[in-house]
Design a protein around this nucleic acid. Structure first.
Lengths: 291, 291
DNA sequence: CGAAATTCCTATGACGTCATATTAGTGAAA
DNA sequence: TTTCACTAATATGACGTCATAGGAATTTCG
């Protein structure tokens, strides 16, 4: 026998949702159905595709191999569905959005949501490395990623250019400076985003070039937390201009050695890029950043 | 209800084979099955997809729209099938090949057939315009086309470079020349390929640039016929070097004004390009032309 | 010449087979 | 207990086949 849609679609949803039950809910069928489909697919392939663990499922190597195909099938299926409904309503749907910085992602989401209030948006903020990976693995639909990797099977559109700056409170020692250099940071407490972030990579590279080290370094998970920390007077933070909403009372100062320009990109797997929902999201992103 | 792959696959096969019965034979099901699937699809779409005529079927505008999707689904389906079978046997299959010149197509087909004798090859020679169109419309799987158009959804690989030359019999008035110019051709009978061919386009453009006209012009459908005509002493023919097997006793002479280089390309729709059969054909093409 | 037969298509209805999804029930882990 | 994955039994419906009908060219033959 040959595998059919149902099996691949069930498999794909399980991978993306991370569990059989969640996939079943999303698909609007019982969990039993999903189990049967995935089992059948595994039987046809002749090996396990998923590792079932208490905390969710993960892909086996074979599973990873098949997931690419399965997801392309799902994308095509959605596209066919859209065409059948005559491109009519976008009154339903889900979109998994991933970003490595709150801005401009949240702004884009706001615009998009304004236009399509009934589309459920699933936003996740994570570090640069993970963000790239989630798109590559097709777990997320679209990404807004700084300096996203380039790949043949990705659609990648540059949205805006930005560079690293120092953020501090207006009563900070460096607050009155027009520009600062790395050497000015040595005796300051510096806050950086978590491991895996592009910021960490860039900063560490710069420091390595100059054979310097920041003695007072704090890393934090997300940008809003960093902002809050700066506001509390914990220190000064380095991150991309425009990557988070900046509270009043904070100042941003260019850093002499971080003149390199970085690009915020819209990315999506090419097979998915034809989908109406994703097209609209891209349109919203372009509308925001080029206004 | 939602349409499923059976319906799309049936539809796609009907389009490519040009009839319900032929599609049924190819699919290994009864004609009744194919009819039912296509009807169901039409019912779901809400309009006719095919115009049934005595001499075959043709696409309605809506049908054309859906055929793109249907064919991508078929390609994906094949790819999944290949993956499941572990890329094992290529002992069956069909490949529609289109070209605007016998060479190097026939040579490539010979190589390919040597390696995969059980793959049925369906070769069609046609003019440049039609060849491009057949690939664009996904009626053919692969093409070997001179200066094929570039498109986002095509895979396009340059195989070899060539240029226009004059072919004539060794007793022809120009046979002893090392090189000829357009002016030398004015008082000769010149044979060109049919309307729509790249040769016609190029030659007419050159003539228009110089505001000249060839007084004694004959056009013929295919390259082998042109060769035969030259051999019979009908006149001299202009066509791409290496585009047909040249009989002994014919000489080829460069033309001064036709120095522009043309590229013979391998082309295939990108969705199909991942298929094993098509990969192997491309490999055969590259093996021939870069040996 | 022209009507009937032939041939090549596609369409339809009835029917058996198999696949799909549901409900219900089991066991395991948190 | 609750959550989750798997399994068994079952109803529904889809798929494919056969037999058959109808339409439109082509051929046959009086």
């Amino acid at each position: 026998m040959r595998p059919n849609h149902h099996q691949f679609i069930a498999f794909s949803y399980v991978v993306r949702e991370g569990s059989f039950s969640a996939a079943a809910r999303r698909l609007g069928v019982t969990q039993s159905t999903v189990t049967q489909h995935v089992s059948k697919l595994e039987e046809l392939v002749g090996s396990e595709l998923l590792l079932r663990r208490r905390d969710g499922v993960s892909l086996t190597p074979t599973g990873r191999d098949f997931f690419g195909l399965a997801d392309r099938l799902v994308a095509l299926d959605c596209e066919i569905g859209e065409r059948l409904r005559g491109y009519s309503s976008l009154n339903e749907g889900r979109l998994k959005v991933i970003a490595n910085a709150p801005q401009p992602a949240l702004q884009v989401i706001a615009t998009f949501n304004d236009r399509f209030p009934n589309v459920h948006i699933d936003f996740r903020l994570c570090d640069w490395t993970t963000a790239n990976q989630l798109i590559r693995d097709r777990v997320a639909d679209v990404g807004l990623i700084t300096d996203a990797s380039e790949r043949d099977d990705w659609e990648r559109v540059v949205l805006q250019e930005t560079r690293y700056v120092l953020y501090c409170r207006s009563d900070h020692a460096l607050a009155d400076r027009d520009i600062v250099g790395i050497e000015d940071l040595m005796d300051q407490t510096i806050i950086l985003p978590e491991q895996g972030s592009l910021t960490q990579q860039v900063v560490h590279q710069k420091l390595a070039e100059r054979q310097m080290e920041l003695p007072q370094l704090i890393t934090m998970t997300t940008f809003p937390v960093m902002c809050e920390a700066v506001r509390q007077g914990l220190g000064a933070a380095i991150f991309l201009k425009n990557s988070s909403h900046i509270y009043d009372g904070l100042v941003e100062i260019p850093i002499r050695d971080f003149h390199q320009i970085h690009q915020t990109c819209f990315v999506a797997p090419k097979d998915r890029a034809r989908l109406k929902l994703i097209n609209e999201f891209r349109a919203a992103a372009l509308a925001i950043t080029f206004q």
